[in-house]
C-alpha cells in the first residue's frame, strides 16, 4: 500500500484491474458504477449474479461449506444462507489481483461476509465486511443501496484494449523490448 501511495504521488497511479480490461472482482464487483446494472437470479441451491460490467457472473452456493481446494479467483468461493430476511454470503479464495476501493491490496486471507436484504419496496441494501488479519488492523465495512428497475435488461459489455490489437503485420500481444 505504501508503494502504491508513493507511486501515485510520483505520477504513476496504480493500474487496477479494470484499467487493464479485467473485472474488478470481489468485493468491488458488488458496488457497480451507476450506469451498469447487475441481475440476481435465485434458485433453491444457488444464487447467480450477472454483472453487465465485463459480462461476468458470480455463483453463490446455498447451504454448503466452502470448497477446501478452491483456487483463487476474481469472484472467490462464495457460500450463502438465509438469516431471517437477510441473505448472508461468505466468500474466501479471492485472487490478490482484486482490490478494495480500486487500490487497497489484500492477502490470500481476505474473508468477506455480505449481508444482502430488501430495504424497501424497490430497494436493495448490500453490506460487505472485509477482514484480512494479514493486511488490515480491523474489518472494513462497505455499504451501498440499489434500485430495482423492472424492465431493464443487461446488455453485452466488451472491454477493448488497444495494446492487444494486431499490428500492421497481423501480430498481436505484448511487444517485448527489442522484439
Amino acid at each position: 500500500m505504501a508503494k502504491r501511495t508513493q507511486d501515485a504521488k510520483d505520477g504513476h497511479p496504480y493500474a487496477f484491474t479494470k484499467s487493464r480490461c479485467l473485472p474488478a472482482g470481489m468485493p468491488s464487483a458488488m458496488f457497480t458504477p451507476p450506469q451498469l446494472p447487475f441481475q440476481i437470479i435465485e434458485e433453491p441451491n444457488q444464487i447467480t449474479v450477472l454483472f453487465e460490467e465485463f459480462s461476468v457472473f458470480r455463483i453463490i452456493r446455498m447451504n454448503e461449506a466452502h470448497d477446501p481446494d478452491a483456487d483463487p479467483s476474481f469472484m472467490g468461493d462464495s457460500v450463502g444462507h438465509w438469516e431471517g430476511d437477510t441473505l448472508v454470503v461468505d466468500t474466501v479464495a479471492v485472487s490478490q489481483e482484486t482490490t478494495l476501493r480500486g487500490v487497497i491490496p489484500h492477502s490470500d486471507k481476505l474473508h468477506l461476509v455480505e449481508r444482502i436484504r430488501r430495504s424497501g419496496p424497490g430497494t436493495l441494501e448490500i453490506e460487505v465486511t472485509a477482514d484480512d488479519a494479514k493486511t488490515f488492523d480491523g474489518p472494513w465495512v462497505l455499504r451501498d443501496s440499489f434500485q430495482r428497475v423492472p424492465r431493464l435488461r443487461l446488455t453485452e459489455y466488451i472491454c477493448t484494449n488497444d495494446r492487444n490489437r494486431p499490428d500492421e503485420a497481423g501480430w498481436s500481444g505484448i511487444q517485448l523490448p527489442g522484439g
Partner: peptide
C-alpha cells in the same frame, strides 16, 4: 404499510438492480 409492501427472504432478491445514482446520470 411500508413494511407490508417490502418483499422479504428467499425470492426477494431476484431482479435487475442499479445504483440510485443511475437516474441522476
Amino acid at each position: 404499510k411500508a413494511s407490508a409492501a417490502i418483499p422479504k427472504g428467499p425470492g426477494s432478491l431476484s431482479g435487475v438492480w442499479v445504483s440510485p445514482r443511475f437516474s441522476n446520470v
